[in-house]
Protein backbone atom coordinates (compact mmCIF):
# COMPACT_ATOMS: atom_id res chain seq x y z
CA UNK A 1 0.00 0.00 0.00
CA UNK A 2 2.65 2.48 1.03
CA UNK A 3 5.14 1.44 -1.64
CA UNK A 4 2.59 2.05 -4.33
CA UNK A 5 1.51 5.41 -3.02
CA UNK A 6 5.07 6.68 -2.80
CA UNK A 7 5.43 6.38 -6.56
CA UNK A 8 2.32 8.34 -7.49
CA UNK A 9 3.58 11.88 -7.14
CA UNK A 10 1.95 14.88 -5.57
CA UNK A 11 -1.09 13.25 -4.00
CA UNK A 12 0.95 10.86 -1.91
CA UNK A 13 4.05 12.45 -0.47
CA UNK A 14 6.58 10.25 1.26
CA UNK A 15 5.69 11.92 4.53
CA UNK A 16 2.03 10.97 4.28
CA UNK A 17 2.83 7.45 3.22
CA UNK A 18 5.15 7.13 6.20
CA UNK A 19 2.43 8.45 8.51
CA UNK A 20 -0.09 5.90 7.22
CA UNK A 21 2.53 3.18 7.59
CA UNK A 22 3.40 4.10 11.18
CA UNK A 23 -0.26 4.37 12.19
CA UNK A 24 -1.14 1.02 10.65
CA UNK A 25 1.90 -0.54 12.30
CA UNK A 26 1.00 0.98 15.68
CA UNK A 27 -2.60 -0.27 15.39
CA UNK A 28 -1.51 -3.75 14.44
CA UNK A 29 1.01 -3.76 17.30
CA UNK A 30 -1.66 -2.61 19.76
CA UNK A 31 -4.05 -5.32 18.55
CA UNK A 32 -1.37 -7.99 18.67
CA UNK A 33 -0.42 -7.00 22.18
CA UNK A 34 -4.06 -7.13 23.32
CA UNK A 35 -4.56 -10.47 21.58
CA UNK A 36 -1.41 -11.88 23.08
CA UNK A 37 -2.44 -10.60 26.46
CA UNK A 38 -5.68 -12.55 26.23
CA UNK A 39 -7.78 -9.37 26.55
CA UNK A 40 -8.96 -9.92 22.99
CA UNK A 41 -9.75 -13.24 21.35
CA UNK A 42 -10.76 -13.99 17.79
CA UNK A 43 -11.92 -17.59 18.26
CA UNK A 44 -15.53 -16.39 17.96
CA UNK A 45 -14.91 -15.83 14.25
CA UNK A 46 -14.99 -19.55 13.52
CA UNK A 47 -17.91 -20.27 15.86
CA UNK A 48 -21.33 -21.05 14.39
CA UNK A 49 -23.26 -17.83 13.85
CA UNK A 50 -26.72 -19.01 14.97
CA UNK A 51 -28.53 -16.16 13.33
CA UNK A 52 -30.00 -15.56 9.92
CA UNK A 53 -29.28 -12.54 7.75
CA UNK A 54 -32.07 -11.16 5.55
CA UNK A 55 -30.01 -9.86 2.65
CA UNK A 56 -26.88 -11.70 1.56
CA UNK A 57 -25.17 -11.96 -1.77
CA UNK A 58 -23.22 -15.05 -0.80
CA UNK A 59 -25.03 -18.10 0.52
CA UNK A 60 -25.31 -17.79 4.28
CA UNK A 61 -27.22 -19.79 6.83
CA UNK A 62 -27.26 -19.82 10.60
CA UNK A 63 -24.95 -22.84 10.75
CA UNK A 64 -22.14 -20.96 8.99
CA UNK A 65 -19.34 -19.28 10.91
CA UNK A 66 -19.43 -15.71 12.17
CA UNK A 67 -16.56 -14.90 9.79
CA UNK A 68 -18.82 -15.72 6.86
CA UNK A 69 -21.50 -13.42 8.22
CA UNK A 70 -18.92 -10.64 8.46
CA UNK A 71 -17.84 -11.33 4.87
CA UNK A 72 -21.47 -11.12 3.77
CA UNK A 73 -21.77 -7.81 5.61
CA UNK A 74 -18.65 -6.36 3.98
CA UNK A 75 -19.88 -7.53 0.58
CA UNK A 76 -23.20 -5.78 1.26
CA UNK A 77 -21.35 -2.54 2.01
CA UNK A 78 -19.30 -2.83 -1.19
CA UNK A 79 -22.24 -3.74 -3.41
CA UNK A 80 -24.70 -1.20 -2.00
CA UNK A 81 -21.98 1.48 -2.03
CA UNK A 82 -20.93 0.74 -5.61
CA UNK A 83 -24.47 0.42 -6.88
CA UNK A 84 -25.43 3.70 -5.21
CA UNK A 85 -22.28 5.43 -6.52
CA UNK A 86 -23.02 4.50 -10.12
CA UNK A 87 -26.67 5.54 -9.78
CA UNK A 88 -25.54 8.78 -8.15
CA UNK A 89 -23.39 9.60 -11.19
CA UNK A 90 -26.34 9.05 -13.51
CA UNK A 91 -28.66 11.19 -11.37
CA UNK A 92 -25.99 13.87 -10.95
CA UNK A 93 -25.47 14.10 -14.71
CA UNK A 94 -29.21 14.56 -15.16
CA UNK A 95 -29.46 17.20 -12.44
CA UNK A 96 -26.46 19.10 -13.81
CA UNK A 97 -27.84 19.13 -17.34
CA UNK A 98 -31.24 20.33 -16.11
CA UNK A 99 -29.50 23.04 -14.15
CA UNK A 100 -27.51 24.19 -17.18
CA UNK A 101 -30.42 24.28 -19.62
CA UNK A 102 -31.08 27.90 -18.70
CA UNK A 103 -34.87 27.28 -18.81
CA UNK A 104 -36.10 29.21 -15.80
CA UNK A 105 -38.77 26.86 -14.32
CA UNK A 106 -36.57 23.78 -14.83
CA UNK A 107 -33.56 25.45 -13.28
CA UNK A 108 -35.57 26.68 -10.30
CA UNK A 109 -37.13 23.26 -9.70
CA UNK A 110 -33.78 21.50 -9.93
CA UNK A 111 -32.23 24.01 -7.57
CA UNK A 112 -35.05 23.54 -5.06
CA UNK A 113 -34.73 19.76 -5.31
CA UNK A 114 -30.96 19.84 -4.75
CA UNK A 115 -31.36 22.25 -1.83
CA UNK A 116 -33.99 20.07 -0.15
CA UNK A 117 -32.01 16.87 -0.61
CA UNK A 118 -28.87 18.51 0.75
CA UNK A 119 -30.70 20.17 3.61
CA UNK A 120 -32.58 17.17 5.02
CA UNK A 121 -30.58 14.58 7.01
CA UNK A 122 -29.88 11.46 4.97
CA UNK A 123 -31.21 9.23 7.74
CA UNK A 124 -34.64 10.87 7.52
CA UNK A 125 -34.67 10.51 3.74
CA UNK A 126 -33.86 6.82 3.94
CA UNK A 127 -36.49 6.17 6.61
CA UNK A 128 -39.08 8.14 4.58
CA UNK A 129 -38.24 6.13 1.45
CA UNK A 130 -38.51 2.91 3.44
CA UNK A 131 -41.97 3.78 4.72
CA UNK A 132 -43.13 4.68 1.23
CA UNK A 133 -41.98 1.28 -0.02
CA UNK A 134 -43.66 -0.40 2.97
CA UNK A 135 -46.92 1.07 1.72
CA UNK A 136 -46.69 -1.07 -1.41
CA UNK A 137 -49.20 -3.95 -1.51
CA UNK A 138 -48.23 -7.40 -0.13
CA UNK A 139 -47.33 -10.06 -2.74
CA UNK A 140 -50.82 -11.63 -2.56
CA UNK A 141 -52.56 -8.48 -3.79
CA UNK A 142 -49.84 -6.95 -5.94
CA UNK A 143 -50.65 -6.53 -9.62
CA UNK A 144 -47.77 -7.35 -11.93
CA UNK A 145 -46.51 -4.43 -14.00
CA UNK A 146 -46.27 -5.48 -17.66
CA UNK A 147 -46.82 -9.08 -16.48
CA UNK A 148 -43.23 -9.38 -15.35
CA UNK A 149 -42.51 -6.91 -12.58
CA UNK A 150 -43.87 -7.23 -9.05
CA UNK A 151 -43.57 -4.26 -6.73
CA UNK A 152 -44.50 -5.48 -3.24
CA UNK A 153 -43.77 -4.54 0.34
CA UNK A 154 -41.57 -7.66 0.57
CA UNK A 155 -39.31 -6.53 -2.21
CA UNK A 156 -39.10 -5.51 -5.81
CA UNK A 157 -39.25 -8.61 -8.00
CA UNK A 158 -37.61 -8.00 -11.35
CA UNK A 159 -37.53 -10.25 -14.41
CA UNK A 160 -34.40 -12.35 -14.56
CA UNK A 161 -32.49 -13.38 -17.63
CA UNK A 162 -31.90 -17.14 -17.63
CA UNK A 163 -30.63 -19.61 -20.22
CA UNK A 164 -34.17 -20.49 -21.22
CA UNK A 165 -35.20 -16.87 -21.68
CA UNK A 166 -36.72 -14.27 -19.42
CA UNK A 167 -38.10 -15.60 -16.16
CA UNK A 168 -40.93 -13.65 -14.62
CA UNK A 169 -41.66 -13.59 -10.88
CA UNK A 170 -44.85 -15.39 -9.90
CA UNK A 171 -46.77 -15.73 -6.65
CA UNK A 172 -46.47 -19.11 -4.91
CA UNK A 173 -48.10 -19.52 -1.52
CA UNK A 174 -46.51 -17.21 1.05
CA UNK A 175 -43.80 -16.09 -1.29
CA UNK A 176 -42.91 -15.09 -4.80
CA UNK A 177 -40.97 -17.58 -6.93
CA UNK A 178 -38.71 -16.77 -9.82
CA UNK A 179 -37.37 -13.43 -10.93
CA UNK A 180 -34.76 -11.39 -9.20
CA UNK A 181 -35.61 -9.94 -5.81
CA UNK A 182 -34.27 -6.75 -4.31
CA UNK A 183 -35.54 -6.28 -0.77
CA UNK A 184 -37.29 -3.00 -0.02
CA UNK A 185 -34.65 -2.33 2.63
CA UNK A 186 -31.89 -2.49 0.04
CA UNK A 187 -33.95 -0.52 -2.50
CA UNK A 188 -34.62 2.27 -0.01
CA UNK A 189 -30.98 2.38 1.04
CA UNK A 190 -29.55 2.43 -2.50
CA UNK A 191 -32.07 5.01 -3.66
CA UNK A 192 -31.57 7.23 -0.61
CA UNK A 193 -27.78 7.09 -0.80
CA UNK A 194 -27.65 7.74 -4.54
CA UNK A 195 -30.07 10.67 -4.58
CA UNK A 196 -28.30 12.27 -1.63
CA UNK A 197 -24.86 11.84 -3.23
CA UNK A 198 -26.21 13.02 -6.60
CA UNK A 199 -27.29 16.34 -5.09
CA UNK A 200 -23.74 17.00 -3.91
CA UNK A 201 -22.11 15.63 -7.07
CA UNK A 202 -24.26 17.78 -9.34
CA UNK A 203 -23.21 20.90 -7.46
CA UNK A 204 -19.55 19.90 -7.72
CA UNK A 205 -19.89 19.22 -11.42
CA UNK A 206 -21.81 22.44 -12.06
CA UNK A 207 -19.18 24.43 -10.21
CA UNK A 208 -16.43 22.73 -12.19
CA UNK A 209 -18.16 23.44 -15.51
CA UNK A 210 -18.66 27.10 -14.62
CA UNK A 211 -15.04 27.30 -13.48
CA UNK A 212 -13.65 26.40 -16.90
CA UNK A 213 -12.38 29.78 -18.19
CA UNK A 214 -14.57 31.58 -20.72
CA UNK A 215 -11.55 31.75 -22.99
CA UNK A 216 -12.02 28.06 -23.71
CA UNK A 217 -15.46 28.76 -25.18
CA UNK A 218 -14.04 31.61 -27.24
CA UNK A 219 -11.13 29.52 -28.48
CA UNK A 220 -13.43 26.68 -29.49
CA UNK A 221 -15.70 29.10 -31.33
CA UNK A 222 -12.69 30.54 -33.11
CA UNK A 223 -11.89 27.01 -34.27
CA UNK A 224 -15.42 26.71 -35.64
CA UNK A 225 -16.88 24.34 -33.05
CA UNK A 226 -20.62 24.55 -32.36
CA UNK A 227 -21.65 25.25 -28.71
CA UNK A 228 -22.91 21.67 -28.06
CA UNK A 229 -19.71 20.14 -29.40
CA UNK A 230 -17.67 22.70 -27.48
CA UNK A 231 -19.44 21.69 -24.29
CA UNK A 232 -18.93 17.94 -24.68
CA UNK A 233 -15.48 18.01 -26.30
CA UNK A 234 -13.79 20.94 -24.61
CA UNK A 235 -15.55 22.06 -21.44
CA UNK A 236 -16.90 18.82 -19.93
CA UNK A 237 -13.60 16.84 -20.03
CA UNK A 238 -11.83 19.63 -18.19
CA UNK A 239 -14.68 19.98 -15.68
CA UNK A 240 -14.78 16.22 -15.04
CA UNK A 241 -11.08 16.10 -14.30
CA UNK A 242 -11.39 19.05 -11.93
CA UNK A 243 -14.39 17.57 -10.11
CA UNK A 244 -12.86 14.20 -9.25
CA UNK A 245 -10.93 15.29 -6.12
CA UNK A 246 -13.97 16.92 -4.42
CA UNK A 247 -16.22 14.07 -5.63
CA UNK A 248 -13.93 11.51 -3.98
CA UNK A 249 -15.11 12.48 -0.53
CA UNK A 250 -18.74 12.22 -1.67
CA UNK A 251 -18.13 8.66 -2.91
CA UNK A 252 -16.32 7.78 0.32
CA UNK A 253 -19.37 9.13 2.14
CA UNK A 254 -21.65 6.83 0.14
CA UNK A 255 -19.75 3.76 1.34
CA UNK A 256 -19.62 4.94 4.92
CA UNK A 257 -23.29 5.88 4.93
CA UNK A 258 -24.32 2.34 4.00
CA UNK A 259 -24.18 1.85 7.78
CA UNK A 260 -27.42 3.87 7.98
CA UNK A 261 -29.10 0.75 6.58
CA UNK A 262 -29.34 -0.46 10.16
CA UNK A 263 -32.10 2.10 10.76
CA UNK A 264 -34.38 0.40 8.23
CA UNK A 265 -33.49 -3.20 8.93
CA UNK A 266 -31.01 -3.66 6.11
CA UNK A 267 -28.45 -6.30 7.03
CA UNK A 268 -25.36 -4.19 6.52
CA UNK A 269 -22.06 -4.73 8.27
CA UNK A 270 -23.21 -2.76 11.34
CA UNK A 271 -26.30 -4.87 11.90
CA UNK A 272 -24.43 -8.12 11.43
CA UNK A 273 -21.76 -6.93 13.83
CA UNK A 274 -24.42 -5.98 16.39
CA UNK A 275 -25.91 -9.45 16.14
CA UNK A 276 -22.51 -11.03 16.68
CA UNK A 277 -21.83 -8.71 19.61
CA UNK A 278 -25.06 -9.57 21.38
CA UNK A 279 -24.57 -13.31 20.82
CA UNK A 280 -20.86 -13.59 21.60
CA UNK A 281 -20.27 -10.52 23.76
CA UNK A 282 -17.16 -9.72 21.69
CA UNK A 283 -17.95 -6.02 21.35
CA UNK A 284 -14.46 -4.61 21.16
CA UNK A 285 -13.11 -7.11 18.64
CA UNK A 286 -16.15 -6.67 16.39
CA UNK A 287 -15.93 -2.88 16.48
CA UNK A 288 -12.26 -3.11 15.54
CA UNK A 289 -13.09 -5.42 12.63
CA UNK A 290 -15.85 -3.07 11.43
CA UNK A 291 -13.49 -0.07 11.63
CA UNK A 292 -10.77 -1.86 9.71
CA UNK A 293 -13.22 -3.10 7.07
CA UNK A 294 -14.67 0.37 6.50
CA UNK A 295 -11.19 1.86 6.41
CA UNK A 296 -10.01 -0.61 3.78
CA UNK A 297 -13.10 -0.05 1.63
CA UNK A 298 -12.78 3.73 1.85
CA UNK A 299 -9.05 3.73 1.37
CA UNK A 300 -9.49 1.65 -1.78
CA UNK A 301 -12.15 4.02 -3.11
CA UNK A 302 -9.96 7.04 -2.37
CA UNK A 303 -6.85 5.50 -3.83
CA UNK A 304 -8.67 4.24 -6.92
CA UNK A 305 -10.20 7.63 -7.67
CA UNK A 306 -6.92 9.40 -7.00
CA UNK A 307 -5.07 7.16 -9.42
CA UNK A 308 -7.82 7.69 -11.98
CA UNK A 309 -7.45 11.43 -11.52
CA UNK A 310 -3.66 11.18 -11.96
CA UNK A 311 -4.12 9.35 -15.23
CA UNK A 312 -6.64 11.92 -16.52
CA UNK A 313 -4.32 14.74 -15.52
CA UNK A 314 -1.48 13.17 -17.46
CA UNK A 315 -3.71 12.84 -20.47
CA UNK A 316 -5.59 16.13 -20.42
CA UNK A 317 -3.86 18.27 -17.83
Amino acid sequence: MTGQSRGTGQWFSTGKAATVFVVVLASVAAMMWLLFDGVLALDFLVAQANFEVSDTLIRFSSTDANARAIAAGILNVVVVGSFASVLACVFAAGLTLLRLTGQSPLVEMTRAFVDIIRGVPLLLQIVALYFSLLALPPPSSATPVMDCLLLTNRGLYLPMLTISGIECPALAGFRVDGGFRISIEMSALVLGLSVYAAAFLSEILRGAILAVPNGQWDAARALGLKPIRTFFLVILPQALVASIPPATSVFAGVYKNTSLGIAIGYSDLMMISNSIITITGRAFEMMAIVCIAFFIVNYSVNTGLTLFHQRLLKRYG
Binding site: N50, F51, E52, S54, M271, S275, I277
Partner: peptide, 24 residues
Protein backbone atom coordinates in the same frame (compact mmCIF):
# COMPACT_ATOMS: atom_id res chain seq x y z
CA UNK B 1 -31.39 -9.17 15.31
CA UNK B 2 -28.92 -10.98 17.55
CA UNK B 3 -31.56 -11.95 20.11
CA UNK B 4 -32.15 -15.31 21.72
CA UNK B 5 -35.50 -15.11 19.95
CA UNK B 6 -33.73 -15.16 16.61
CA UNK B 7 -31.74 -18.23 17.62
CA UNK B 8 -34.88 -20.04 18.82
CA UNK B 9 -36.72 -19.22 15.60
CA UNK B 10 -33.83 -20.60 13.66
CA UNK B 11 -33.67 -23.80 15.74
CA UNK B 12 -37.39 -24.37 15.29
CA UNK B 13 -37.36 -24.11 11.50
CA UNK B 14 -34.19 -26.18 11.25
CA UNK B 15 -35.70 -28.90 13.41
CA UNK B 16 -38.91 -28.97 11.33
CA UNK B 17 -37.04 -28.84 8.04
CA UNK B 18 -39.00 -25.71 7.12
CA UNK B 19 -37.76 -22.71 5.22
CA UNK B 20 -38.44 -19.09 6.07
CA UNK B 21 -37.29 -15.67 5.00
CA UNK B 22 -36.06 -13.68 7.97
CA UNK B 23 -36.71 -9.95 8.05
CA UNK B 24 -34.19 -8.98 10.68
Amino acid sequence: GGTGTQATLNDYFREKGFTYTPAV
